[in-house]
Design a protein around this nucleic acid. Structure first.
Lengths: 227, 227
DNA sequence: CGGAAATATTACTAAAATATTACAGAGGGG
DNA sequence: CCCCTCTGTAATATTTTAGTAATATTTCCG
């Protein structure tokens, strides 16, 4: 079930919206201020956060910033009646994913939510074929010729990125930032070691190759099968 | 380069928007009605379409529907001053990907575009034909008659510049500054050596030539094929 | 035609990047 | 509390890159 966190100090409207979203099949948690919102965010791990900008105490932008410090994945939509250019842009700068001016129709919001979630679903498709190998990123498993192996979390994160960009180069720095979240690993060989493991694990399937682009990054390639 | 198709019957505003998007680094084609828009769509294959809803003749919704019959991938944003609930929902039902009410700030539109493109990991087109050779600047690869070679980072940077200026001279100093970032290499033969390598790598394809303009720079030229 | 400057060509090599393997600490589950 | 997996680090091996130097060739211009 898709989990949505709604943070807004307007209780009456929020209750209405919460109910509407629930009839649409979402699981909705509600907080009426930023602090409570942050706590709920940590405990429920939602896929989407609806954030009112104008709130007493911590406002929506501040909460978004706090969340983005540790989570660059979750979708954040700002809800607001401020329509000033500055605010609308600020929402994107803070790395919100959309900015929805009030008033809006709940159907419209739901349409947007579904649209964005399905957009991401492409990436979150858990099963993919890499050459002749079946890869389930949810289970972190690779299956080739009836033989399954489970890869580690690190390896899974890296492979997920490579698979999402099959046939294209993925920059070293991008992987480091995305997986390690910290650029201080730039001089480390941690990534090289993990790539090495992945290559070994994938090696039974000769149609799959991870190529190195020296000084740039890696490419997951599918070669035409010899058979 | 990311390609955007703009279809809107308001010529004046569109010209302004087109220019703004171009300064942001997008390649923008413009059509002032649905029919012309459809033709442009087929020929340019854009990654994103900005569609005005209110247009004489085929309106935005109709054009979107036509495009969606054969293309479920391309991003479609509706631009409109209709704010009725019906219309806003219709945009999503037709499988538009966003609905942007006029008036909007161009910066806001650009933010949304970038957000959605990065979400989908739509990148620029990196493949170009140099004569009969396929050049992928992302993979740093050159393919001629089924044979692929990977070129080095330096070579790739240089070739990227030359390809972007096909048939036109690129000054030595420009390449030195762009690739080496340092003019102190002016007296070095480093560039000459790299050009030499590029010539060798490109030599199987006789339709491609890097000419030297003495004391000025280099030109990547495509010659008519002898065969 | 001649000489100087610019460019081409080739080989060489230091340094940097990457691969490979082993190992140890952290942390979790039983 | 023990065993096992994970993951970073370190040590070492290997590969790639790209500048430089040595030499050859071309171009320019009087």
């Amino acid at each position: 079930m898709i989990k949505i966190l709604l943070v807004d100090d307007d209780v009456a409207n929020s209750m209405f919206l919460k109910q509407y979203l629930e009839t649409e099949g979402f699981e909705v948690a509600y907080a009426k201020d930023g602090n409570a919102g942050y706590g709920l965010y940590r405990s429920m791990q939602p896929q989407l956060i609806l954030l009112d900008v104008n709130m007493p105490g911590m406002n929506g932008f501040e909460l978004a910033q706090l969340i983005r410090e540790t989570d660059s994945d979750v979708l954040i939509f700002f809800l607001t009646d401020r329509t000033g250019k500055e605010d609308r842009l600020k929402g994107f700068i803070i790395k919100g994913n959309d900015y929805i001016p009030k008033p809006f129709y709940p159907e419209e919001l739901v349409a947007k939510i579904k649209e964005r979630l399905s957009d991401r679903q492409i990436m979150e498709e858990t099963v993919a074929m890499i050459g002749d190998t079946r890869y389930d990123s949810n289970l972190s498993s690779l299956t080739f010729e009836e033989v399954s192996v489970t890869i580690s979390e690190r390896q899974n994160e890296i492979l997920k990125i490579l698979v999402g960009q099959i046939g294209r180069m993925v920059a070293r720095d991008y992987i480091l930032e995305t997986v390690w979240g910290d650029v201080s690993y730039r001089n480390s060989l941690a990534l090289n070691v993990q790539i090495n493991y992945l290559r070994k694990i994938l090696s039974p399937d000769s149609s799959v190759v991870i190529d190195t682009l020296h000084k740039r990054g890696y490419v997951l390639r599918i070669k035409a099968n010899p058979g």
